[in-house]
Design a protein around this nucleic acid. Structure first.
Length: 492
RNA sequence: CGGGAGGUAGUUCAGCUCGGUAGAAUACCUGGUUUGGGACCAGGGGGUCGCAGGUUCGAAUCCUGUCCUCCCGACCA
């Protein structure tokens, strides 16, 4: 076990914090609630971003950028959305500082530079975007608008956790405008599928696709679809959301179009987003007590090569061989790093790259060169094998694919073991406390019951799974009839 | 935002009760020996003790305020 981080058994939260810091993903900052994303963590985000960006473009979307500041009057136009976010908004009230006359070298807010109208730092951009769309849309010929933006947003959180909940975070937000309800609903589910595809096939993280209850719904949305993932401590994590916004924003911002019959109609809307929270999800879905375990498709470094040499002469020899391997791997499009720095010994490097979750390690020493082999070590299983140099590129390519699916399968099996169907209140609370994970149970469909269950157990309804099978039953709390099961869990 | 803990060398921490020249380990630098799972020897550099006030002849230590972090809770798409 790593000497550097707390084990999951001892303290799961501490394990997570240690891991994020020691693996070099992020740092705390001098600003309350805000973190610094370090180069390694940012490289991970860049990989995620690039893949998602391509997926968005492949589904017809284009990128744009809107202001970070939203005039309060615009922000409050869509009432429910504004109310939902009001409690966590940072607000700009002044535009200038000046020297403090009473305290040399210090600055104060210039009281004369008060803004006529306060600016809200965006917690999300529906308001400013729909205010803009009003000017973009006149006719059905202007629709659909399929825009995405990569941006930072601010939500003033009282309690923060690296990547999972910080005052400022990076995300993408898609905002689309459509002529018909059907088209908007279709867009909402299409993007949900994109997110699920990304989570499962790139992050190797199985997710449940579902729809949120009224209580958990995005403020201002008609329906909120989500992907829910399960972390290793049995808690659920919302990994992405896609909202069908109906005509709420169109009405609030008076966005209408003229249809083919020359009649004016309100535009239909969607919005959808994933954030740097995905990094937290990725960490908690796969990693172990030795450090990160990253899926090869997202790992900033897919293979690290560590030389093992005795003396300068053998180093030169090994460098030569290793550099050829590096070239060959790069030609195959593999992200490879050769670490021949001589300020750390091999054992230290092994531990370091395990901490950083590099999926594959190649060790090469004089002995290996003699035998025309290298040592391959898998991060996910810790398995070490000696393999011939001939055909190494093809072998590691296959191995990276195998690791990708092995990580997914492991997470998938864990999840399968942690979805429990229960039919009574006793079973329900017992499962939450002892097994954790998702608990599939009947619910009478009322907010009151949902609220009461939350108060009593801290479990929330994560979602009503899509394509849920109809099944007659009785609510675990109220005993009232129910037509389907929903997924409960304690969540991040 | 409430309760608890904490902030001293790059890092992890000791010193604080009971005020009196700033400590350890590790990391770093130099030289040497090493290198198949977090090396060893010798020498060296590095801290206005989170910040701001106050008490005192004297403050890391006592008092007040403030900022930041962690844990638990409340809040939260």
């Amino acid at each position: 076990m790593s000497k550097e981080i707390t084990s999951r058994e001892v303290d799961y939260s501490q394990w997570y914090n240690d891991l994020v810091l020691k693996a070099g993903l992020a740092d705390y900052s001098a600003v309350r609630g805000c973190m610094v994303i370090k180069p390694y963590g940012y490289a991970l985000w860049e990989n995620m971003r690039d893949i998602l960006d391509k997926m968005f473009k492949d589904t017809g979307h284009v990128n744009a950028y809107f202001p970070i500041f939203i005039p309060k009057s615009l922000f409050e136009a869509e009432e429910k959305n504004a109310e939902g976010f009001a409690k966590e908004c940072a607000v700009v009230t002044h535009y200038r500082l000046k020297a403090d006359p009473n305290n040399k070298g210090k600055l104060i807010v210039d009281p004369e530079a008060k803004l006529e109208e306060e600016l809200v730092v965006r917690p999300t951009s529906e308001a400013i975007i729909w205010n803009t769309y009003k000017t973009w849309i006149q006719s059905y010929r202007d629709l659909p608008i399929l825009v995405n933006q990569w941006a930072n947003v601010v939500r003033w959180e009282m309690r923060t956790r690296l990547f999972l909940r910080t005052a400022e975070f990076l995300w993408q937000e898609g905002h689309t405008a459509h002529a018909t309800k059907e088209e908007a609903v279709e867009e909402t589910t299409r993007m949900l599928e994109v997110y699920a595809d990304f989570a499962e096939n790139y992050m190797a993280m199985p997710v449940v696709k579902g729809v949120k209850t009224a209580n958990e719904r995005f403020a201002g949305a008609e329906d909120t679809y989500c992907i829910e993932a399960l972390m290793q401590d049995g808690k659920a994590l919302q990994a992405g959301t896609s909202h069908f916004l109906g005509q709420n924003f169109a009405k609030a911002f008076d966005v209408t179009y003229v249809n083919k019959e020359n009649k004016s109609e309100y535009v239909w809307a969607t919005s959808w987003g994933v954030s740097t929270r995905l990094i937290g999800a990725l960490v908690m879905a796969h990693s172990d007590d030795d450090g990160l375990v990253l899926p090869p498709k997202l790992a900033p470094i897919q293979i690290v090569i560590v030389p093992i040499y005795k003396g300068e002469e053998s180093k030169i020899l090994i460098d030569g061989k290793a550099n050829i391997i590096v070239q060959n791997l790069k030609q195959k499009g593999i992200r490879v790093k050769y670490d021949n720095a001589d300020n750390a010994r091999p054992g230290w490097k092994f531990a370091e790259y395990e901490m950083k979750g590099v999926p594959l390690r190649i060790a090469i020493g004089a002995r290996d060169i003699e035998n025309n082999v290298v040592e391959l070590a898998r991060r996910d299983t810790k398995e070490k094998t000696t393999v011939p140099l001939d055909g190494l590129e093809e072998r590691v390519q296959l191995l990276l694919e195998e690791i990708q699916s092995a990580i997914f399968n492991k997470a998938n099996q864990y999840r399968a073991e942690h979805i429990t169907e229960v039919n009574t209140w006793d079973e329900f609370t017992k499962t939450l406390d002892e097994t954790g994970g998702f608990v599939s149970a009947h619910w009478d469909g009322t907010s009151e019951t949902e609220e009461s269950i939350k108060t009593q157990t801290k479990a929330t309804i994560r979602c009503i799974p899509l394509n849920n099978k109809e099944e007659e039953g009785f609510c675990i709390l109220s005993g009232n009839p129910s037509k389907e099961r929903v997924l409960f869990a304690r969540a991040y």
